[in-house]
Design a protein around this nucleic acid. Sequence first.
DNA 1: GTTCCGCATGAATCGATAG
DNA 2: ACTATCGATTCATGCGGAA
Lengths: 295, 295
Amino acid sequence: MRVKTDIIFGDCAEVLCHLPENVVDLIFTSPSYADQRKKTYGGIHPDKYVDWFLPISKELLRILKPTGTFILNIKERVINGERSTYVMELILAMRKQGWFWTEEFIWHKKNSYPGKWPNRFRDSWERLIQFNKSKKFNMYQEKVMIPVGGWAKTRLKNLSDVDKLRDKSKVGSGFGKNVSNWLNRDKVYPTNVLHLATECNNKNHSATFPKELPEWFIKLFTRPNDTVIDPFMGSGTTNLASRRMGRNSIGIEILYDYYKGVRDQIEADELVLFEPEKKYETTGLNNECYRVRRE
Amino acid sequence: MRVKTDIIFGDCAEVLCHLPENVVDLIFTSPSYADQRKKTYGGIHPDKYVDWFLPISKELLRILKPTGTFILNIKERVINGERSTYVMELILAMRKQGWFWTEEFIWHKKNSYPGKWPNRFRDSWERLIQFNKSKKFNMYQEKVMIPVGGWAKTRLKNLSDVDKLRDKSKVGSGFGKNVSNWLNRDKVYPTNVLHLATECNNKNHSATFPKELPEWFIKLFTRPNDTVIDPFMGSGTTNLASRRMGRNSIGIEILYDYYKGVRDQIEADELVLFEPEKKYETTGLNNECYRVRRE
DNA sequence: GTTCCGCATGAATCGATAG
DNA sequence: ACTATCGATTCATGCGGAA
């Protein structure tokens, strides 16, 4: 089975209109934060942010499958000593547009931007807002299970008396049931906080998020051969991860330099792939053994 | 120096009206989440939450000093597969009321409660929303500095020769100056993510947050002898922390059992110190107590 | 080969200065 | 007054060269 990776040069507000409806399993993207990347993306003013984004999210709602998921990586910046409210306003507006606001994951950044100010600390977290078309969507939780950490061990060690007691006394109790399940388990489900470092040492393409971020959500919300889209592709982290993991993907990028860079990588990769015998080794379909580190 | 701890039995919506304006340095509280503790607090319906809270936050705005801070610990619950929007709506409404939304800290819970659901993971973070009366407020950042990471250690060890030289040669240089500052520094500033465990060992009253949480903000936003208030006292974690740290505090609680429990602790604490002067009655107002120990 | 160490590099934010 | 630009601040990370 061949994996398609379509890299498109253009403004996603226009490009998305040409895509058919109900074809995408996962949208994972990080649009330019309001006024943030002025030199590269043109910097949307905070007051115009919602109006700018809503037409795009409307198209995204159209192309997403009913069982699909939209993960939006965003963080409001500080203006005049206050956090801007455009993210909250965007969530409220998107709900009116028909989106379900299912969850908000947190990306806890290990290495946040340095600096010191008299009235605030460094910002070391970003939002990963999960939208869906309904309460029912595909989620493959077991694909992102992580090794049992220190917490579960000590909890089992210390509380096992009480918990086992509870397990016996209350048969229907979900808690007791869980504990007995854990006893023979070496992996646990993660939480809604992802603790990752940013990749800030890459000189050529400054990726805004580490590849582990899209990888995690691709594993969680798609299966091999599903389709992922990133309408604000940037350096192509989402698409390259999709490709490695055997997912088809679409990337839309408004700046030619970024577009060209990603295209070149994909094309070089194609050449490697079509050498005999190498075809499937690099897709890494079931090679999903890395883990998100948790403290 | 005496430290006062006033524990008041009543509904904060009414009690707060009787407090004078501009007297409080820090408000730290965790109101009952919408519809969450139905049996104990009466469970505010999510749709009514903002309307219920706004009169209270209006009084809080009145009693807070211009340099003071309001930290609101809250998290929206899931209803019908979606996160409720009342927290976002509350922030927007409180801004209209005159509050500055300065920052949103994250409490990243190390050990979140176990459980499994088909379409979401365990929720292991809560919001700590910081409001102020203006851009200018008291913040004692050095009080919450934390041990340094790897970088500064190696840097100080290895580069001190070169840097000291540079320090001598270039007097006005910011770099040289910084290095000399670093030489005696083994601590760095924290970020806006607090990574703390929940307290699961409290058997009598289930505290909603660990004592480290109010402690951190009390250190950050108040000095000894300042005044802290928790209008939804619960098991009194905020007030007991304030008391230990030499801050005056006020706690308001609508449920008699909680009120009584905290009062008993405070009184017992006081008896230890001033046994002959047992003069307090059960009225609760102006219940003066004495400081036990400093940080 | 390892380990060690210097270094550049950030979705940042504030206050001052300039137009 | 109001916006635009600039310098200063700060620290975790991974690369590459050195020991």
